[in-house]
């Protein structure tokens, strides 16, 4: 199973995005959020905890999406701390559009690579 983790400085931002993804892609996806627990910010400890949670749910791979730069620093650090056993792919994509596109790809039968590709393509889609 492929899971997804949304890393955000803001708990509400991540929760809102999860809600949106679940509405669009259904709630069968293993989808976690990390960050913004007490104050705004995301640290590696929070991300490790969510990685472990998703792994316990049976995820062999986890796609990670982040909002601003330091969410990615936290995610990369957490990946180092986690060790082996689960493939962590940190995706360079717009937080909202990218994670939605990846979720759609995963829930319509796509694999890790399809989802990453869909997420990255989101950079090319103009809104107006």
């Amino acid at each position: 199973m492929v899971g997804m983790l949304l890393v955000s400085h803001s708990r509400r931002l991540a929760d809102g995005l999860r809600e949106l993804i679940q509405q669009l892609a259904g709630d069968t996806l293993a989808l976690g959020t990390a960050g913004g627990q007490e104050t705004l910010g995301a640290d590696a400890g929070m991300v490790v905890k969510e990685f472990e949670h998703l792994r316990a749910l049976g995820c062999e791979a986890i796609l990670v999406f982040g909002d601003l730069g330091s969410a990615f620093i936290a995610a990369e650090t957490a990946r180092d701390l986690l060790g082996d056993g689960v493939e962590i792919r940190i995706v360079d994509a717009p937080f909202v559009e990218g994670s939605v596109a990846a979720a759609m790809a995963l829930t319509t039968g796509g694999g890790v690579d399809d989802a990453v590709e869909a997420a990255q393509e989101a950079y090319e889609i103009r809104k107006l």
């Binding site: 400085h9 104050t39 705004l40 910010g41 995301a42 640290d43 590696a44 400890g45 929070m46 730069g69 330091s70 620093i73 936290a74 990369e76 650090t77 180092d80 701390l81």
Partner: peptide, 19 residues
């Protein structure tokens, strides 16, 4: 530092010291 400092500085100082 990794688990107490939110934001980039915690991850940067923390992961560098661990490594």
């Amino acid at each position: 530092l990794l688990s107490t400092v939110g934001g980039a500085s915690g991850a940067l100082w923390g992961s560098a010291l661990v490594k």
